[in-house]
Amino acid sequence: MSDIEWLQPTFPVNLVTVVLIIIVLVSVLQGATRGATGSAQRFMQFAAEGAATVVSVIVAWKLAAVLSPVVEEWLKSRQIVYPDEELGLFRQMYYTFVTGIRDFPLLRVGTVFVLAYTACKAILLRLWLFIAYGAGLMGKSPAGGGGRSWMSSGVGGAIGTLIGCGRALLVIACLFVYTALFPESPFTRYVQASTLYAEGAARVVEPAGGELLQQRLPVFAKAVEQEFSQILQRKYEVIDARIPSDIAEAAKQITAGKETDEAKARALYQWVGTRVQYDYDKVEQYEQKRIWKEQTPEDTFATKLGVCIDYSRLYAVMARAVGLDVKVVTGLGSDGRGGYGPHAWNEVFLADNNEWVPLDATWVSSGSNWFNPQGFDKTHIRDA
């Protein structure tokens, strides 16, 4: 049974339709309670907020497009490097975020957009309030409801209906975005079964840009997913920026005489995979007692014990010590029985071939080749 199938026998009426009706009815009730004057003021405020939102989105989008290259160039000119020392949590977050803005275009555009949108909307709303109060449009509405006439309540209810319809359309627009991103999900089918949603989407959202959203949103979401995965890996570059001298010396000895990037990368892959032993006690401690023993690449190098993330972090530090560009990748790895579990591995850049290739030093003990084999992505699924 899917996540939403249980709703249908329990609630014979579509809940999306019910929620949209409730939104409108509550707004009508609020309008009738406020009366004509209070509802008119609330409607002007609602319209002003809507207009400010639209204008702020347009302005912020334009500013993000203009300022993003400027921010990128400025951050590159700062020549930010990770300190060769152990970093605390907040410094790790700082370097991950700042270098992420520098290197990842969607994160940079998104950050500039959010800042510009927030500033623009705050300015516009304050300007509106200044004008509204100056013109007497936002004075106090009559207190209490005992002396309010039926006509005033009726007008207020009518205005509340307009506000309620506007709120319902906002909800429909949000649901439309969800259905565009996840067209095959059970919840999408449930949403689309709502007659009110279907009417609002067909008559308002789609004519206002729905077709563009349906075409572009999935592509944009995929790009965001890929970039977010890269940002997740950046943290290991930050926390493992310091290369201990004993690890650097070992890496140089292991790769001595190796002329190509691939030869160096393979030598380190073989060394880490055969020298480090899998720490089953660490896994048992976590699975049974939820105790996680965090360890640095230096700990792994010294003890020659670790789990997949420890293999991967040690490999990355050793690879960087000999000038290789390398990433720690997290995700899911095949358990060999048709299932998957949390796993970590590496990707290394081979300048000779101008390509990134995957490798899994943890699985060297299996006896198979896990340095850029065919079908690697069938047994390894990146985090997203």
Score class of each variant (00 low, 15 high):
296 T>R: 07
269 Y>W: 08
76 K>N: 15
200 G>R: 06
79 Q>L: 12
208 A>Y: 09
93 M>V: 14
36 A>N: 04
47 A>Y: 01
138 M>K: 08
79 Q>R: 13
56 S>F: 02
105 P>C: 06
44 M>Q: 11
105 P>H: 06
241 A>S: 14
196 L>Q: 06
79 Q>S: 14
275 R>F: 06
222 K>C: 01
245 S>Y: 00
27 S>V: 04
215 Q>W: 06
208 A>G: 13
319 A>M: 03
27 S>T: 04
25 L>H: 09
281 D>N: 08
127 L>M: 09
218 P>T: 07
146 G>W: 10
366 S>K: 05
33 T>C: 01
57 V>G: 02
163 I>H: 04
200 G>E: 11
30 Q>H: 08
326 V>K: 02
105 P>L: 05
30 Q>E: 11
195 T>S: 13
54 V>N: 12
17 T>C: 08
324 L>V: 03
29 L>M: 12
263 A>C: 03
78 R>Q: 12
302 A>R: 15
228 F>Y: 10
132 A>P: 07
339 G>W: 06
276 V>A: 03
127 L>K: 00
150 W>K: 10
47 A>D: 01
242 R>W: 07
373 P>Q: 11
89 L>F: 15
154 G>Q: 02
288 Q>D: 11
6 W>I: 11
339 G>T: 14
234 R>I: 02
239 I>T: 13
185 S>M: 09
37 T>R: 14
260 T>L: 05
1 M>A: 13
272 V>R: 03
263 A>M: 05
372 N>S: 14
366 S>M: 04
174 C>E: 13
199 E>P: 00
39 S>V: 02
104 F>T: 07
3 D>Q: 13
34 R>C: 00
140 K>N: 08
63 L>R: 02
241 A>W: 04
305 L>M: 13
243 I>K: 04
185 S>T: 12
184 E>C: 00
285 Q>T: 00
95 Y>P: 03
347 E>C: 01
43 F>D: 06
285 Q>M: 12
287 E>Q: 10
204 V>Y: 10
120 C>S: 12
272 V>N: 00
38 G>A: 07
83 P>V: 05
83 P>L: 05
278 Y>V: 09
76 K>I: 03
261 D>E: 09
111 T>R: 00
260 T>G: 07
130 F>E: 09
335 D>H: 05
78 R>S: 08
338 G>S: 08
74 W>R: 10
341 G>I: 12
271 W>T: 11
287 E>M: 12
324 L>E: 03
252 K>F: 04
1 M>S: 14
370 W>A: 04
245 S>I: 09
278 Y>I: 09
197 Y>L: 09
248 A>M: 05
126 R>P: 00
270 Q>E: 15
61 W>S: 13
20 L>D: 06
287 E>V: 12
77 S>N: 15
109 V>L: 05
323 G>L: 07
206 E>Q: 11
143 A>R: 07
345 W>P: 01
154 G>E: 01
94 Y>V: 00
136 G>F: 00
340 Y>E: 13
198 A>E: 15
296 T>F: 03
